[in-house]
Amino acid sequence: MRINDVLNAKPSHDVITISPDASVRDMVALLAQHNVGALIVSGDGTSVDGIVSERDVVRRLHDDADILDRLVGSIMTSEVRTCEGDLELTELMQVMTEHRIRHVPVVSQGRLTGIISIGDVVKQRIGELEFERDQLDSYVHQT
C-alpha cells in the first residue's frame, strides 16, 4: 500500500493551508471549521513553508496568554518532514513513530499534493487487518 492509495481513499482531497502572516486566532478558526488537527503553512498554497497544529498552540498557551494574537509563523514548525505519494505506508508509519509526528505533507516535485494524518494511517491499517481476518475466516470455514 502506497501513500497515494491512502490519499485516494480519503473522502476529501483538500489540503487546508494558512499563510505564515495569519494570526493564530485565524488558524484556530480554520482548524475548527475544517475539523482538522494541523494546517500546512504556505505563502502560495503549493509550497510547504511549515506546519502548525493545535498542539503548537496548547504548548505555548501556558507561557503566553496572548498567543492567539501572534502570527502563525512564530509558532509553526519550519523543518517539516514530507513524503512522496509513492512511498510505502509502512515506511511512513515508521517515520511518524520514530519522530513522534502526527501529520505529514505529501509532495510531488516540491508541490503540496496532500496530507496524511496518523488517523488516516490507522484507518487504512485497520481496514487491511479486517480484510485479512475476513479472508482467513472464510478459508477456515470452507467445507
Rank of each mutant, 00 (worst) to 15 (best):
S78W: 09
G127Q: 11
D56W: 01
L129N: 03
G119M: 04
A32E: 13
T90I: 11
D26L: 04
T77F: 07
V6D: 07
Q124R: 12
D14F: 10
D44M: 00
S42Y: 00
M1G: 15
E132F: 09
M27I: 08
E130I: 06
I51K: 04
I18K: 04
E84Y: 11
V121K: 04
V121W: 02
V28H: 00
G110I: 02
V58T: 10
S19Y: 06
V104K: 07
V121M: 11
I3N: 03
P11A: 09
K10F: 06
G119V: 05
D5T: 13
V72S: 05
D44T: 00
M96D: 08
M96V: 09
A65T: 07
S117W: 05
R125D: 06
Q124M: 11
P11R: 12
E132M: 14
Q94I: 11
D63L: 12
T82S: 10
M93K: 11
Q94M: 13
Q135K: 11
H99K: 15
V58E: 01
T77A: 10
E132W: 05
N4L: 10
T17D: 04
E132R: 11
R133I: 13
H141Q: 14
I51L: 09
K10M: 06
D56H: 01
V48R: 00
S23A: 09
V52I: 13
V95L: 13
A38W: 04
M93A: 15
T82G: 02
M76I: 01
S23C: 09
D44Y: 00
I18T: 08
D5L: 03
R111H: 14
A38M: 01
P11T: 10
L31I: 08
G119Q: 09
M93I: 08
V104E: 07
A22H: 11
